[in-house]
């Protein structure tokens, strides 16, 4: 159980925030390019899912797993996208993302008067609260103890 990294995108595809904890391998491209690649692939996955689905989707794409990691996806009604990479055995990541949105993002970014929507988040308070939130979650735990 571990958390590798987190991406937050707005509805236009701007990367608002990136953080990493136990990431072992970098992608070998700049962060900017990586965010575009990530957003692009999520966009394709979403359209892929809505087309291949035999029934009408409500939330759509939830997560995918490879043999090494799992990518969990959570989209709010306003189009904010939270993407988190964990290891394969983690459970309850969806709740974690919802909590992260409600307790950290809304509290320390949306309610921050200096932040303009659609721009990257630079707040030190958000950074520390996010770090604290991730590190106290049971999913982060174990591997680092």
């Amino acid at each position: 159980m571990t958390i590798y990294n987190l991406y937050i995108f707005d509805r236009h595809g701007t990367m608002l925030y990136y953080a990493e904890w136990n990431r072992v391998k970098q992608s070998g491209i700049t962060r900017d390019e990586e965010s575009k690649l990530m957003y692009g692939s999520l966009y394709s996955i979403k359209s892929f899912v809505s087309k291949i689905s035999p029934l009408d989707t409500r939330e759509g794409f939830l997560y995918y797993k490879t043999d090494k990691y799992a990518l969990h996806y959570f989209e709010t009604a306003s189009g904010l996208k939270f993407v988190i990479n964990t290891d394969c055995s983690s459970t309850g990541v969806k709740d974690l993302l919802q909590q992260l949105y409600a307790k950290v993002f809304v509290e320390y970014t949306v309610k921050n008067p200096i932040w303009t929507p659609g721009t990257p988040i630079n707040s030190a308070l958000f950074k520390s609260k996010l770090d604290e939130f991730i590190k106290q979650s049971p999913i982060y735990g174990l591997k680092n103890v």
Partner: peptide, 13 residues
């Protein structure tokens, strides 16, 4: 985009 080296592709979506 894997955070771990030598990852396979998507196995479950």
């Amino acid at each position: 985009l894997s955070p771990e080296p030598k990852s396979s592709g998507i196995e479950i979506l």
